[in-house]
C-alpha cells in the first residue's frame, strides 16, 4: 500500500533537498550575523588603562568622528587595582589612530548610551600598531560637572546676594536716598499747604489793607482836597485792583504746580520700588548672555576657516643665543 502511494515516491530526494535548503539557510543566517558583528573584517587591538571601570561594558562600541570603528572586547582588573581595557578596531581605520590619539568615555546625547570615543591623531605622528597602548583622557561625570559649575556660579551668586543685601540694607545709601526722597515728598505736601495758607492769609491781609487804604485815602482825600492828588490815587487804586485780580490766578497756578510735584515724586517712588527688585534678575540674565556669547565665540573659533593654521599653532622656545 505504501509503495503504491504517490506521496512517498522519491521520498529520499525530497528529504535530502529539504535538509540542503535548511543548511543553506543556516549558513546564510550565520554569514549575515557575522557581517553584522564584523566577524569577517580585519581588526587590531589597542589597550588602555583607567582608574575606574564604571561605565565600560564588554561589547561597547568604539566610535571615531561619530562612526563605529570597533568595540570593547575585554575589561579586567590589574595588579595595581586599575582597569585594563582592550578594544578591537577595524583595520581600515588604522590611518586615523596615531600615537597622539586619545580615547575617552562619553555619552551619546544626554540620555544616550556610553561609548568610547577615539580622537583623530596628528598626521605627522606614527600610526598605532596592534596591541599598542592608547592614551585615555578622563572625562568629567555629570556630578563633577555640576560641582564645577556650582563652584563657578557660587561667587557670582554671592556677589548678587551682596548687591541685593546692599540694596535692601535699611542703613544703606540707596534706602537712605529713597527715604530722604519720601521725606522730601511729604515735606513738599506740607510746604504746599503752608503756601496755600500763606497765600490765603496774604489775600485776606491785602483785602484788609485795601479796605483800610481806601478809608485812609478817603480821610486823606477829604483833608487834602485842595491838593490835586486824584490822578495818583487813581493810579494806585488801579494798581491795587490789578494785583487783586492777578493774585487768585497766581495762587491757582502755584497750587497746580505743587500738585504736579507731588505726583512726580510719587511716581519716582513707585518707579524705584518697581525697578530695584528687577536688578538681580537682570544681572542673572546678563550672565547667561555672557556665557552664551563665550560659547558662541568658542564655536566660531573652532570653525576651520577661522581657527589658526596648524603651522601657526606649533609652539617654539623662548629666544636664546649662544653668547648670553
Amino acid at each position: 500500500m505504501i509503495q503504491q502511494d504517490t506521496r512517498f515516491q522519491n521520498l529520499e530526494w525530497k528529504i535530502g533537498l529539504f535538509i540542503i535548503i535548511a543548511l543553506a539557510g543556516i549558513i546564510v543566517a550565520f554569514v549575515l550575523f557575522g557581517m553584522q558583528k564584523d566577524f569577517f573584517t580585519h581588526k587590531y587591538n589597542l589597550h588602555f588603562t583607567v582608574d575606574r571601570g564604571t561605565g565600560f561594558t564588554k561589547g561597547m562600541p568604539v566610535k571615531l568622528s561619530g562612526f563605529r570603528v570597533g568595540r570593547i572586547t575585554s575589561i579586567a582588573l590589574n595588579d595595581q587595582a586599575m582597569v585594563d581595557i582592550n578594544a578591537e578596531i577595524d583595520n581600515k581605520y588604522r590611518k586615523w589612530i596615531r600615537s597622539d590619539s586619545t580615547v575617552k568615555l562619553v555619552k551619546e546625547g544626554l540620555v544616550g548610551d556610553n561609548i568610547v570615543e577615539v580622537a583623530v591623531g596628528s598626521s605627522d605622528k606614527p600610526e598605532l600598531k596592534d596591541k599598542d597602548a592608547i592614551v585615555y583622557v578622563k572625562t568629567k561625570g555629570l556630578d563633577e560637572l555640576a560641582d564645577e559649575l556650582a563652584d563657578q556660579v557660587k561667587p557670582v551668586l554671592l556677589e548678587v546676594r551682596d548687591i541685593i543685601s546692599y540694596i535692601n540694607n535699611p542703613n544703606g545709601d540707596l534706602k537712605k536716598s529713597i527715604h530722604n526722597l519720601e521725606l522730601l515728598t511729604r515735606n513738599l505736601d506740607g510746604t504746599r499747604r503752608n503756601t496755600d495758607k500763606l497765600l490765603v492769609s496774604a489775600t485776606g491781609n491785602i483785602d484788609r489793607i485795601a479796605t483800610r487804604t481806601d478809608k485812609i485815602l478817603e480821610t486823606t482825600n477829604r483833608k487834602i482836597e485842595s491838593i490835586d492828588l486824584m490822578p495818583t490815587l487813581n493810579r494806585v487804586n488801579s494798581a491795587l485792583d490789578h494785583i487783586d485780580e492777578k493774585l487768585p490766578v497766581m495762587l491757582v497756578k502755584a497750587d497746580a504746580t505743587l500738585g504736579n510735584l507731588s505726583v512726580i515724586s510719587r511716581e519716582t517712588q513707585l518707579l524705584s520700588e518697581n525697578t530695584f527688585p528687577k536688578i538681580p534678575g537682570i544681572l542673572s540674565q546678563t550672565e547667561d548672555v555672557l556665557l552664551s556669547t563665550d560659547r558662541l565665540i568658542n564655536s566660531i573659533q573652532n570653525i576651520w576657516l577661522l581657527s589658526p593654521s596648524p603651522s601657526a599653532e606649533t609652539p617654539g622656545f623662548i629666544r636664546s643665543d649662544s653668547y648670553e
Binding site: S65, T102, A119, V120, V137, P310, E313, T314, P315
Partner: peptide
C-alpha cells in the same frame, strides 16, 4: 589642512605660546 587636535593638547600649546 584641517587637523582635529585634542582640546587638552591645544590648550597646552596655547599656554606655551
Amino acid at each position: 589642512t584641517q587637523i582635529i587636535r585634542p582640546e587638552s593638547q591645544r590648550l597646552a600649546e596655547t599656554l606655551l605660546i
